[in-house]
Design a binder for these strands. Structure first.
Lengths: 238, 238
DNA sequence: CGGTGGTTTGAATCCGTTCAAGAACCGTGG
DNA sequence: CCACGGTTCTTGAACGGATTCAAACCACCG
């Protein structure tokens, strides 16, 4: 993957171009920018149904998957069966990157509702869009920074603050996709949220009820309306 | 070499080569893989003292730093002052990767004792060793997998198990560098360990005392001798 | 020496978990 | 259409593991 090489061009030239491209890219907020870069690249569009697994950890990985619609979760699993959700993913996110340089996938990717992904075989990436590779590197780096931020959140905030952080993060992400930041439709269960935030599902429920009781949000099942984003944000200030 | 593949070779061959290359990186023997790849690359050797900060979050980043000696910690900081250690780093680890594609560093890097780093300006990387960039991508991906594993550990194990996981991880890493896996010299404080594991320093102290009381380890300040690695490993099975 | 940073241990407290039970929801099939 | 079983969500009460607060100890160093 990291090879990109056609017979006519030599390694040094390719590598230098790659380096320049990487250095030129500045951290960009989330956007389906990748989608527009795939002009002329033959991708395989693939519909997925709720609860369908896109790929399993341990499976050979030969493609990246660009989310075009739907919400996904990725999970890691320990030998003794402990499972942890490592993230929720929306349109524009790239699934499978984390296995770069590895022969098999490191996580499971599961659709939380019906959706569509664009499958990009690594061979296609290499042959048709090698200029995209630096972007993958950049996205990997920003994934690390995102993970670190969640580590910070989980490691230093209490249960209530974690749930609030989750809601605000989700709101910001759907807003960046052009949807309302006020009306959230959580596609995941309370158990999923709890797993991600290192809390029990009962704790998540209780906290949502409490927030609703104080009027900061309105909860109706998986629909959450944010009534006072400012107050929520202030709760995160330690 | 990951980047010498021509279009004529099929995925299987490529995948196998990746696997071999990545395994070679992960299972680095005494001589860290990256170090030997820097033959002929003009790096700047730089000594650091205990508690010295290599770079701060927010600083413009124009170099990677390869650890040649010493132990470092990287930390992220929230706006309201919460700080979290994102990792401890040994010889062969590359610091600053996570800022790839970003104009400034995302974390602080602090030396826990005297050490030496090889500073590799990004410009140098581009001009003298562009073939190293794919390795950076691979290392970024494996950093993500490492982070996910710690998320799993912190999210699903109790305090005692986390401390045990920390000790075993540290032991495995120093062993991979050619040192004894039995005699650990923890360079970080109890507060550092606690911060990394999302525990209070008193909890870390108590657990080390308890493990010592049951004879699984011997503790003398920052020196820890592992007496029964098997029993420790068994404690991690949920 | 006193001072500082780090470690250890105890006792009381509290936050989130655990266990339990019931309600609401949803797709499926009779 | 409603009955059904399974999943998800909600709420209560009791419990317990980790935190918090406090005090003492130690090593090191200016």
């Amino acid at each position: 993957m990291l090879d990109t090489i056609t017979a006519s061009r030599n390694d040094d030239v390719i590598a230098r171009e790659w380096a320049e491209a990487s250095l030129a890219i500045v951290a960009s907020p989330r956007q389906p920018a990748i989608e527009s870069m795939l002009q002329g690249v033959p991708v395989q569009r693939r519909g997925v149904r709720r609860k369908q697994t896109l790929f399993y950890a341990g499976q050979p990985c030969h493609s990246l998957f660009l989310i075009h619609a739907g919400v996904f979760k990725t999970t890691v699993l320990s030998e003794d069966g402990r499972r942890k959700i490592t993230g929720f993913h929306l349109r524009g996110d790239l699934l499978g990157m984390d296995s770069f340089g590895a022969p098999v996938h490191a996580c499971d990717a599961v659709a939380l509702d019906t959706g569509e992904v664009w499958e990009i075989p690594l061979a296609t990436l290499r042959d048709h869009a090698p200029e995209l590779l630096p972007h993958v590197t950049t996205m990997l780096a920003s994934e690390i920074r995102r993970d670190w931020n969640w580590m910070l959140t989980l490691g230093t905030l209490n249960a209530e603050q974690r749930v609030v952080a989750f809601l605000l993060d989700f709101a910001a992400r759907v807003e960046a996709l052009g949807f309302s930041a006020r009306h959230l439709l959580l596609r995941m269960t309370r158990a999923d949220i709890g797993n991600f935030l290192a809390l029990q599902l009962e704790t998540v429920t209780r906290i949502l009820s409490r927030l609703a009781a104080t009027g900061l949000i309105v909860v109706d099942g998986r629909e959450v309306r944010i009534e006072d984003a400012g107050a929520l944000r202030r709760m995160l200030v330690h």
